[in-house]
Nucleic acid binder design. Sequence first.
RNA 1: GGCCCCUUAGCUCAAUUGGCAGAGCAAUUGACUCUUAAUCAAUAGGUUGAUGGUUCGAUUCCAUCAGGGGUCACCA
Length: 490
Amino acid sequence: MEEQFAVRLEKLKKLQQLGVAPYPYRFEVTRRFAEIIALYREQDAEALKQAAAAVRCAGRILAIRSMGKSVFMHLFDGEEKLQVYVRKDEVSELDFAVNDLLDIGDIIGVQGTIFKTRTGELSVLVKELTFLAKSFHPLPEKWHGLQDKEVRFRQRYLDMIVNPGAMEVFRKRSRLIQAVRRFFHERGYVEVETPMMHPIPGGASARPFVTHHNALDIDLFLRVAPELYLKRLLVGGMEKVFEINRNFRNEGISLMHNPEFTMIEFYELYRDFGDYMELSEQLLLALSAELLPDAILRWQDKEIPLAPPFPRLKYMDAISEKSGLPVEQLWDETALQAHIRGLFPGEPLPPTFGKMLELLFDHYVEKSLVAPTFVTYFPKAISPLSKVSRLDERETERFELYIAGMEIANGFSELNDPLEQRRRFEAQVQDREKGDDEAQRIDNGFLQALEHGMAPAAGEGIGIDRLVMLFTGAASIKDVILFPLLRPRE
RNA sequence: GGCCCCUUAGCUCAAUUGGCAGAGCAAUUGACUCUUAAUCAAUAGGUUGAUGGUUCGAUUCCAUCAGGGGUCACCA
């Protein structure tokens, strides 16, 4: 460890003695490896030899196979690998001396001509070799790659260098977010950024992180959702609006939860939750067209076709069907209590009616929703920002989209009656007093905005990380977040 | 936070019942001008996550701690 560092430092000093700049400023690259492969892969060895196409390219050394006066190396440019071939009689004496001081992990640039080896591998015959950067640490082993999850997360760069799939996941993530943006821009939505630091945390049922602003001497909360700010923009007349940004929730970490995660929230005036279920289907189709060859999600051992329209299943019906309890008993708090006592003997009852329903939903329903399914008409008690259903005043026009047993999206017809909204907030305050510390708080600024009049609107939030999991097959949210939260070392 | 599992060379992994801690890759030295997990010869590399205990003797058994993973809870 210390020893390998020292050896490599010594090599860097020798390079300097040869007059080589240890940290040069730039290198002209004419082609990425992917371009070189695309351009020349199909040509036969003889044609390539005749053409002797000149390229300049650069990458990190992943493997060195030296036969003394003839050296093969594999370079990696973050995307593709390419073999380069250094022959003593093809390069200057200095370049060959430099070549002799290279280690796996170093970064070099080469100028040379394209050819194919005897075994048919596309390669660059090096004419000039430029040292670009030294690596003082050995790379993880080439054959097994880097297995240690902790190192992969803490030193993500190593994961990206030696595990080809890692880089691919984050490229896909980038393409997915780009496709989401395009989808909404094409439909005339305006992208905005609203505060990450909130005086009152709101828009979702979750425990917030607290921080402090010194000059104002006030506590602030990292946002749990942008919802209440985006709806202020609806009041202001922004007809179609979306935001892609981070939310922060001071909660547990699991395969599906990271304390900071990326959400898109979008809103449109004059629409309702039915419109937004359809829009969600269109969005998933658009992402599928962009990222999947055949409109089938492959997640873990499951194959999940994305074929709208997705079934709609009422929240209470879903619990009833799986639990065997008649729907009317689910509305009866006493009956609920009895059922939960039977299900989890000895455990404390959830503090509120809403929490009991959520417990049963999570227990009976959530994991079973593998094929894309809209769960609809959530009870009013757990939906403080949604409009009451036109069909049953105990329910709201709210839906959640489930895929692979994961909640992916949450949308509703937005409650725009300020008097009703105030009553809902007050009910939340009562829940908080009963012991539900994720219950929402009264946001008077938001209520004041509603009092100025907000047109009917639909709104929805989609967890981007979980979408990326679905589209990349990742089992853990940590696999799709570059630097997931871990306990700091030392 | 509860329970279970893991932590051995830079990396991937071994080590019989508690009996001198090993291999492959990487590294070092040497040979080799079409190799590709290059090959061949030699060399070096360790406070077995930390601390304490049991024992003649601990990588192995016990306790505590640290980090990670899994699971349940919390959580949308």
